[in-house]
Amino acid sequence: MIDIMLPYYGDVALMQAAVNSVRAQTDAGWRLTVVDDTAHPDVPGWFESLDDERVRYYRNEQNLGVTGNFTKCLDLAEYDLMVMLGADDIMLPNYVGTVLSVAKDHPGVGMIQPGVEVIDEHGKLVSGLTDEVKKRLYAPRVEGRRVMGGEELAASLLRGNWLYFPSICWRTEAIRAVGFRPELRTTQDLALELELIERGEQMVIDDTVCFHYRRHLGSVSSKMALDGDRFTEERLLYSGAADRMRARGWKKAERAARVHSASRLHALTLLPTAVKGGQGDVAKALAKHAFGNG
């Protein structure tokens, strides 16, 4: 069984599509838990109308924010495996069957990254610059399955984080031992992945496409990118990671953290938009991140 945890905030229709994608799984080895961090009046009634014993629904008495809601979801997970599904993402019908097959063949693995396709806010398959760079420059070549861990995986992710966090299946015990850092907003995923790697956890990458990751301008990370906060947070994360990699003697990983090429490239691609929009302070912050030493 897999605990599929859905920390909900945002668009109601997209959340309902995410929930229905879970209910359409061809493998029955799942339970869905939705933790509602909104005040939409019609949402509780919609879940009640599902009358589906496989779906648990909770509404927070007060807003917990992204990290607080993630932590509550983590506390509610009970099975050995769990997923932190995005409230606007889609599980294809073969998702649960795919990751359970991987877990059976690799018992005790900390993370499973299955094949992912990217969709826009309308559900249309897209292939933008960000995802093409991930795929062609940073993601490892995988045919079938591949096990990665240690410095190899750390260096790969520090060069460019090619993972899709909401699609990852985690060993619950492993992710709970690390948890989520309350001071982080947009680098929560990479921070968690790196700490698990440093604790000795491995990842299995399976090329079976079974997940649709939704990329759209309304996301928290997209909104933060052009106010400069995202890259300030990233710079601090990479600096700390570089020091830890150095202490471990992981020279390739340390170098990847200090260079953080994908993060610099992302800032560079946003620079023209900031300049065109007359956001001088943002443009300076992006230029500092793209061309600076730290």
Rank of each mutant, 00 (worst) to 15 (best):
I4E: 06
Y8R: 07
G10W: 09
A13Y: 04
L14E: 11
L14P: 00
L14V: 01
N20C: 10
S21R: 07
V22I: 03
R23Q: 12
A24T: 10
T26R: 14
G29K: 11
L32T: 07
T38H: 05
P41M: 05
D42Q: 15
V43M: 13
V43E: 09
P44G: 05
G45Y: 04
G45V: 06
W46C: 03
S49P: 04
S49T: 13
E53K: 11
R54L: 09
R56Q: 14
G65V: 08
V66A: 06
C73S: 03
Y79N: 15
A87T: 10
D89K: 07
G97W: 12
T98F: 04
L100N: 09
V102W: 06
A103Q: 08
G108R: 03
Q113V: 02
D120V: 10
G123R: 07
S127I: 00
L129V: 13
D131P: 00
D131M: 10
L137A: 12
L137G: 01
G144K: 02
R145K: 12
E151Y: 00
E152P: 01
R159E: 14
L163Y: 00
F165H: 12
P166D: 01
R171N: 12
R176L: 05
V178S: 02
E183T: 11
R185N: 06
Q188T: 14
D189A: 06
D189V: 02
E195W: 00
M203P: 03
V204L: 08
V209E: 03
C210L: 02
Y213V: 00
L217F: 08
L217Y: 07
A225M: 11
D229S: 14
R230W: 08
F231M: 11
T232I: 12
T232G: 14
L236I: 08
L237E: 08
L237S: 08
S239R: 13
G240T: 09
R244T: 11
K252D: 15
A257M: 11
H260S: 11
A262Q: 13
R264N: 04
L265S: 10
P272Y: 02
V275R: 11
Q279Y: 10
A283Q: 05
K288P: 00
F291H: 03
